[in-house]
Design a protein around this nucleic acid. Structure first.
Lengths: 275, 275
DNA sequence: GCTTGAAGGTGGCATAGACCAATGTGGCCG
DNA sequence: CGGCCACATTGGTCTATGCCACCTTCAAGC
């Protein structure tokens, strides 16, 4: 019944440290004691024990399996870069990509999508939701929005088959030119967790992209959610003093201004890690 | 007393939908009813109500303030791109960056850091932890590891003052050349949450960087955690058919292979959003 | 009029207990 | 011997409740 509080250290924090000790002396895949056992041994309630486990699951150090138990996670995401044997090594690319169509509808743009595509909120857009897989396991959910006027006909078969941009160019005389893309971290909600087969509140990348054609008109707006435990972005930066062309106020991600103000990205690749 | 379960829909899911309705009809910064009021009105327990709120806080739609109440979040991260008035607009860069030294020690490399820097685990490295701020508010935590042999002397004053790479070149004849960097999503733990002033399990970007000099020797290993609610990476991609030089297996983040296989990043910038 | 402090409301943490759902196992029965 | 079902175990969800820390407010005191 006694509360902690003035103890200045959270109970679930103490529990988490204990669990980390359990994890250290075990190998990936090994089981740890059950929730009820642990909560009894540590003298805390099961909700408190679960709260501590929640954090370890979110950070990818433990996995839970309903009806079976809790196990040490197969691989820590913070150790993936270890496989690079040298600085210049560019990590291998991922496996075989495939996709599964989840939805294909013509809907009203609405306020948000309408603004982005610069069409009326009442204008029709083709909405495509598809699941991206690597070697058969879910990697990302894509939500595409294309002004319906650009693609009067678009069958699921065409989507599955080939390159969307090729299709646009060959069948609709739409030539994509460039895209502005933003990448930010997020966590998956209940629905996304189900589709991607990860726990709720798992880390993920939210990628938004607005593609425009050669005339500058928006062609597609894409909203994607990528699994954080299986996707990362690797880039190679040239930091030599030879190319000081960067604009003021612009700098590389991860390198705040003041450390240096020149250099350029020369290579960018992504890897879908097959654990 | 009755349980849901077989209803197939989670109670906190229903509560979440209700809360989203509350958020929609309000403006950023507006208050929503208290936890006790909501749990009574909705006929759920307060822990359940809190579980539903947790998800909305984690996705950046609500903010909690101890002793004051709950409020609609100032800006939804999924709407930040709205400020772009056209596809070619490159978002403005962030505000004034500063940094605060948290730790400066000479420690043993250890197995993990030693592997990355290609030195003995017993070799000494300079460990620097610093807090990066934009306009005075915390943005990121940086953990730098530099082989002690490269920097026989390094005072806190030198660190605060200037460019680390300039310092290396001018005082230690170390010329940085390139870096391999990886970006992946994560969530902050208790300690990071305290320093960055965000809730536990908030989304964040984990950026790892290994910098090498012109001779190919590792110079520094950096491990950074960036706040997800204030940091995003924006890049402009040229998708023209003119530059099909990409290597097999390499593709742009957010654009799985099969959509197209050519094009190149021509601009990359980051914005620290001042809310 | 200004300061101060007690009261009430808010979120934060933790407890104890109950029931449901999924899993694996072992004994029973054909 | 083989298949099937009941049971024990494990995680998943929810309720009801208590106390603490923090903030705002407002009235009493200087």
């Amino acid at each position: 019944m006694e509360n902690n509080s003035s103890g200045a250290v959270l109970k679930r924090e103490r529990v988490r440290e204990f669990l980390l000790g359990l994890i250290e002396v075990r190998s990936p895949g090994d089981a740890i004691p059950s929730e009820r056992t642990l909560s009894a041994e540590l003298g805390v309630s099961r909700p408190t024990l679960r709260a501590a486990v929640d954090e370890l699951v979110a950070t990818g150090q433990l996995v839970r399996e309903h009806g079976r138990g809790m196990f040490v996670a197969p691989a820590k995401i913070t150790q993936e870069l270890v496989s690079d044997d040298a600085a210049v090594a560019v990590p291998r690319a991922g496996g075989a990509w495939s996709s599964r169509l989840l939805r294909l509808d013509t809907i009203r743009a609405g306020a948000r999508i309408g603004r982005k595509l610069r069409v009326s909120p009442a204008a029709e857009v083709v909405y495509i939701a598809r699941l991206r897989l690597v070697d058969g396991t879910p990697m990302a959910i894509e939500h595409l929005h294309i002004p319906a006027a650009l693609v009067p006909s678009l069958s699921p078969r065409e989507l599955e088959a080939g390159d969307l941009y090729d299709h646009l160019r060959e069948h609709h005389q739409v030539h994509v030119d460039q895209a502005v893309q933003s990448i930010e971290p997020t966590v998956v909600n209940e629905a996304e967790a189900g589709v991607l087969d990860v726990p709720v509140l798992s880390p993920a990348l939210l990628i938004e992209r607005l593609t425009t054609d050669t005339a500058g008109h928006p062609v597609e707006y894409v909203h994607s959610v990528y699994r954080g435990d299986r996707y990362r972005i690797v880039s190679r930066l040239a930091l030599g003093v030879t190319a000081p062309h960067s604009r003021p106020g612009s700098h590389h991600p991860g390198i705040p201004p003041g450390d240096f103000a020149h250099g350029d990205i020369i290579t960018s690749s992504t890897t879908g890690d097959a654990r």
